[in-house]
Amino acid sequence: MEDNPVSVIKRDFIKNLLAEDKREDGRALDEIRALDIQCGFVPRANGSAYVQLGNTKVIAGVKTQVETPYNDTPNRGNFMTSAEMCIMASPHFEAGPPKIEAIEVARVTDRSLRESGIIDMEKLCIEEGEAVWGVFVDLEILDYDGNLFDACSIAALAAVMGAKLPATCPKTGREVYAKDQPLPLVKTNATFSTTFVKIGDKTLTDPALYEELIADTRVTMGVDPKGNVRAMQKGGFGAWTVDEIKTLRKKAAELGKQVNKEIQAAVKRAA
């Protein structure tokens, strides 16, 4: 993502701190950064959330539009997540078509939401074979200070949870519902990701920029607070042991409980 080399001094300093189980910003190894979630940041969208994870800033916006269903799923709505790494987010991001990293972030976010079944896709059907709702989650990455996966995933979930389907079809102006109604959500299936990186023999939660840049390997886990797994993505050139992955899965579920509370509270505040 960032192509400038991290200075040897910076890398060694982070490693020396880690040797004493310390981090630059004073966090414990398994602590996430301060999280701020504002739902409804873009009232014009059907749902939206502004998320600040440390200094990383992301906005998720949900747009719904009426579409023709696919032939093989005539009674199911459509769902898609995309991410834009705005050039303002980092001195090293460049204009152009979506970079491979943006696609990866979007797809992992997409999987943890889609596979969790939090949106009842069948209830997005307006008329079987004719018209269904398409739900688009678009992520704007505004400030990159590490761990886009979790910031995006939390923003996407918060935006979806607060999103509403319009009463009238925006294309035809035809009335679909009596009034705007919430997306058909399955309340228990809130899933978002938790990311870990390994530097040497230390595992860290929610890597900040330089931790992420010098990490040997990364794993992002889309786990719900009960521990059910919906999405996983390993990244980086290093490798994890089987035991490490199993332990982290439990840790992700544990850490997710607090974050989940914050998401629910943010959605409630905006409602």
Binding site: V42, R44, A45, G61, K63, Q65, E84, D138
Partner: peptide, 18 residues
Amino acid sequence: CKYNMAAFSTSDRKRPGP
């Protein structure tokens, strides 16, 4: 300069990209 509209900024979703 790069002026860009977020996909969710308009009443109909705007396709990303210039």
